[in-house]
């Protein structure tokens, strides 16, 4: 029965490894959450309490007084409009690339790949330069168009791969059954694109919701700040007042984590830039 002992040992070892990985991955987040729920005087106490002995929402209430709802609202508007723009413009482009041969098609694909590989950090100064000269800085619409331009290539790429998995015969059948190109796109192809749309939509949604770099550069006025920009200015405003700072962080990340856990499969396919299985 030698191998039995080995199996038990292996299981024990892998359990320990798993616990270690989970602690490293989650500790900063759990610690932040726990801090955001502690009363101010306990936050800096030594030794630190991992599970707060006393729970309070006072820091979250502070945030509301600090216009938090406006920032959350701005982030939601920017994220949702960006998602809708990206999906509409991206899906029709992906359909065209997937279904037609036309002059310049490979050039379009090349442009898409090129833009996908430009790091956003190297776009911010040029973008700021242009947006400032056409007066689109410090406006939500400016953020929306930039996000759309940055995320369109990945949406097109995901949808292109996805529509590629839908047999061409399906749209041919619809056309023979009496539907025009556009009608067959609407009635047959689009209803079958669900998983691809969810995957790319979530990708864009998290990008727009999480983006800090672009927004920090473009936005200065309080009334149009998105949540990450607000958190960044809290960092200066609250200084070492970690309570409200971490509370605002939690407001920003909890929805994303929830959506990630619910739609994990689609997230992964968005990250790998392609096919959704099942």
């Amino acid at each position: 029965m030698h191998y039995r002992r080995e199996i038990v040992l292996r299981k024990l070892l892998s359990f320990c490894v798993n616990v270690f990985i989970a602690v490293v991955a989650l500790a900063p987040i759990v610690w932040g959450l726990s801090t955001s729920l502690k009363p101010t005087q306990k936050i800096l106490s030594l030794p630190p309490e991992i599970i707060p002995s006393e729970i309070t929402f006072v820091h979250y209430r502070t945030l509301i007084a600090q216009n938090m709802l406006t920032y959350v609202g701005n982030s939601m508007i920017v994220s949702l409009v960006t998602v809708m723009l990206c999906l509409t413009i991206g899906t029709v482009a992906a359909y065209s690339l997937s279904r037609f041969e036309f002059k310049g098609r490979s050039l379009v694909l090349l442009i898409i790949i090129a833009v996908m590989s430009i790091p956003i950090a190297s776009l911010i100064v040029p973008s700021y330069t242009l947006m400032a000269s056409i007066g689109l800085t410090d406006k939500l619409v400016g953020l929306i168009v930039l996000y759309t331009a940055y995320q369109l290539p990945i949406v097109i790429w995901i949808m292109y791969a996805y529509i590629g998995t839908i047999p061409r015969e399906i749209d041919n059948a619809a056309m023979i059954d009496g539907y025009s190109r556009l009608a067959s796109l609407r009635k047959v192809v689009l209803p079958l694109c669900g998983p691809g749309l969810i995957a790319s939509g979530l990708f864009v949604l998290t990008f727009a919701w999480n983006d800090f770099v672009v927004a920090a550069v473009m936005i200065t006025s309080d009334s149009v700040k998105t949540l990450p920009v607000a958190i960044y200015s809290f960092l200066g405003y609250f200084g070492r007042e970690w309570g409200p700072l971490l509370a605002s962080s939690m407001v920003s990340i909890i929805p994303v984590i929830a959506i990630f856990i619910l739609f994990q499969r689609y997230f992964l396919s968005g990250m790998t830039g392609g096919s959704v299985k099942g």
């Binding site: 987040i29 999480n210 920003s252 984590i257």
Partner: peptide, 29 residues
């Protein structure tokens, strides 16, 4: 475990760095 290790990735970079800053700061203990 895959889900767990992915959580730091889906969290925004801003907040991730902020959480680590808090964790590593002298204030947190």
């Amino acid at each position: 475990m895959r889900t767990i290790v992915l959580v730091p990735y889906v969290v925004s970079m801003l907040v991730g760095s902020l959480l680590l800053k808090w964790l590593l700061s002298q204030d947190s203990g």
